[in-house]
Write a protein that binds this DNA or RNA. Structure first.
Lengths: 207, 207
DNA sequence: AAAAATAAATGAACAGTGTTCAAAATAAAA
DNA sequence: TTTTATTTTGAACACTGTTCATTTATTTTT
């Protein structure tokens, strides 16, 4: 009875094709301008078919969203070998910013857009597990820093949120084009410069 | 020949009525779910009329966007009497965060959403004058801090961007519902707590 | 092999969107 | 009053996400 299995595979394959088509169009034109009909056209199926594989448009983009977190987590893996928590923290910042600037549309979907997950279901904790994973990595690194004697007087959770907010703030202002207000000649480097300022501040807080 | 003037007034009045209706609906349902037809219904005009007063939907929301900057700038005015630049800087942070949390939809329109201005015209500097104003206020305050001897080793422009990014990061993560990853019992206070951590860091950099 | 049952794909239909524009209604000027 | 100018209209266009009865394709049973 390998037929049921093959059918399952076929179904999974088409699901994947929808996802690939959606990602292609999304990276070309953004979420809003990617319509179900566009996706259907690209895979040469009718619009209605899509709904046999995904509940709605949000579910499609939530799937891409999850893929983005895996990408980001993958990039962080090189830091496993960095034993100095302070160095690891700065490495995380660099990788995070680099990921955001290299994949602005994906970053936008993951951290800026109205979260697709909110529309898919009443967001229970399960659904946020990707986000939990990355934030926990940051939190545990900062905890290590504190345990080693850095950031005296600061508190783990709030500081973790603050650090995340700082890098998110910089890249999201850039991605959503709010950097026009900084000096014209600085606009291309302002995120990098800001990050360096941040690192030098973190160093000052080390003792 | 007061007729031309009266007509001018009438036109301006209807323009204002459109704006009021747009703002009402926008604060109720958000930009995307506020349609031209909704606005037209509310002021009891046909949809087509709107286009005699605004080029397109973006122009309407850019007008509201400008109003938001005036509001924010207005709140900042109380700081004119704060002579200590360090205190003024922290005051700006508090006011900024408070404004964002009290007017999340307006903040979203001003700093998070795809800038309406980008679609209205090829954004020249003129159009960003509201943004320039607020950022210049931050920059000049930080310059004062540096002149007085704070933030030694840091550079005005990049540090200004970093400070802005930090507060923007916190409130935008909150507004776009990315705080689910922090400890459940901390979610309501995390922005306030993060801001306090930030202030304590700024204090450490004072000397 | 033919018939019945199951599964998958279709495309028209619905209610909505921003925007345009010829025509109609209104107001002002001659 | 007639002519000119302005303002308002609402139908039409080309889209959108989503649903669902109907058709097509495949698998199972007879």
């Amino acid at each position: 009875m390998g037929i049921a299995e093959r059918k399952e595979r076929d179904k999974e394959e088409l699901r994947e094709r929808i996802l690939v088509a959606a990602k292609t169009l999304f990276l070309e034109k953004g979420v809003e301008k990617t319509s179900i009909r566009n996706i259907a056209d690209l895979i040469e199926y009718s619009p209605g078919s899509i709904y046999h594989y995904f509940k709605d448009k949000n579910e499609i983009f939530h799937a891409l969203h999850q893929g983005g977190f895996q990408q980001l987590m993958g990039r962080m893996e090189v830091l496993a070998s960095v034993s100095n928590p302070m160095e690891r923290l700065k490495g995380m910042g660099s990788i995070y910013v680099q990921f955001a600037l290299e994949n602005p549309d994906m970053y936008d979907l993951m951290f800026i857009k109205d979260a697709p997950i909110l529309h898919v279901s009443n967001s229970n904790e399960e659904q946020w597990k990707e986000g939990f994973g990355t934030f926990n990595f940051l939190r545990s690194t900062i905890k290590e820093c504190i345990d080693v004697g850095h950031f005296r007087g600061h508190e783990e959770e709030a500081l973790s949120f603050l650090v995340w907010s700082t890098v998110h703030g910089m890249v999201s202002l850039r991605i959503r084009r709010r950097c026009e207000v900084v000096l014209a000649q600085r606009q291309d480097t302002i995120v990098k410069d800001g990050l360096n300022e941040f690192f030098s501040i973190l160093d000052r807080l080390s003792s």
